[in-house]
């Protein structure tokens, strides 16, 4: 995990280094131009006159001390800015993962019982839709449908500032109401992947030798399905869910932009418009960290299911 972070940081530095123009240019641009003397001063300030490896080393140390620089646009430390926005993204990403995974497994198991039936057809259609429909487009369509034409969900944001209450549940309900559409939008893609994979994996397991053994033991269809087959078909689905974490985070960026959800995604969108490079790089580091944590969690779940996976890799 630490290596992954280190590599992201080095990658960040390399991209900064290779990109046309340097930080001084960017800052000068946001300030609306600077003269030659100011530029030299800026360059010394950022250590840009130092040799390559010294710069790299300094950059890594700086980031390791959680100093991600300053946002020119918001005029505050990037780290504080990210901490402010991180919870919203975490909420969106993890709720979407949990919802799509649990619904996907249910749907997949149900469809596998009848491989040529309607439910299987539905899972196949759903997976085609999930793959083909761009998530931001699905988001806009849902927004049009359920916020504009049938206004049951709020259009944007995470909370309704007009609510005045001390009750935690009132606020929680408010956030949930705001969360629903973005979460469903994001979950829809992965629901499609997971249900299809779960169905396929279930069908494969149902053809396995040990399922035949279970049948020969006289177990009922229900026991075979829910005990023997389900547990075995979970591993590939959960492994895939772990691999999908980075895709979920990528999707969240688009979904947040559509719904103005105040997380890292909207922040990234705004910093692109504002050419606020340090913020963008900070977000890259933190979202990578988020994916790594997600992977560790899926590893733990996998390990609890399958006794054959042991030790760390």
């Amino acid at each position: 995990m630490l290596t992954v972070l280190l590599v992201v940081i080095i990658l960040n530095f390399l991209m900064l280094h290779l990109a046309p123009g340097d930080i001084a240019d960017t800052i000068a641009a946001t300030m609306g131009g600077a003269d030659e003397k100011d530029m030299i001063q800026l360059r010394t300030e950022y250590g840009l006159d130092q040799p390559f490896f010294i710069q790299l080393f300094q950059y890594v140390i700086k980031v390791a001390m959680l100093d991600l620089g300053n946002s020119h646009f918001y005029n505050m430390p990037v780290f504080d800015l990210i901490m402010e926005r991180l919870p919203a993204t975490l909420l969106l990403v993890f709720s979407a993962q949990i919802v799509s995974l649990s619904l996907g497994i249910l749907l997949g198991v149900y469809a596998a019982q009848n491989p040529n039936g309607l439910s299987s057809l539905f899972v196949n259609m759903l997976s085609l839709f999930g793959y083909a429909a761009p998530v931001f487009w699905t988001g806009i369509l849902l927004l049009i449908a359920f916020s504009l034409y049938i206004p049951i969900f709020p259009v944007a944001g995470m909370r309704d500032v007009t609510i005045e209450s001390d009750n935690f549940f009132v606020h929680a309900f408010d956030v949930a109401r705001h969360l629903f559409l973005p979460m469903i939008t994001l979950a829809s893609i992965f629901l499609a992947y997971y249900s299809r994979l779960c169905r396929a994996s279930m069908l494969e397991v149902l053809g396995a030798d040990f399922v035949r053994t279970a049948k020969a033991k006289g177990l009922s269809q229900r026991d075979i399905l829910m005990k023997h087959a389900l547990k075995n078909s979970l591993s590939p689905v959960i492994t895939f869910a772990g691999l999908s974490f980075s895709a979920v985070v990528s999707g969240a960026i688009l979904v947040e932009t559509v719904y103005s959800w105040p997380g890292l995604g909207t922040l990234a969108f705004n910093s692109i418009i504002a050419r606020d490079t340090p913020v963008l790089l900070g977000i890259l580091i933190f979202s990578t960290l988020m994916v790594t944590v997600g992977n560790l969690l899926t590893d733990m779940v996998l390990r609890s299911i399958d006794p054959r996976i042991q030790g760390s890799q």
């Binding site: 980075s246 895709a247 985070v249 990528s250 960026i253 990234a268 890259l284 990578t288 994916v291 790594t292």
Partner: peptide, 18 residues
């Protein structure tokens, strides 16, 4: 590493910088 990296964000950074 490339599987852990949120690809869209990384591509955003590349395009934003280059």
């Amino acid at each position: 590493f490339f599987q852990v990296l949120p690809t869209l964000l990384f591509a955003m950074v590349i395009v934003a910088l280059f």
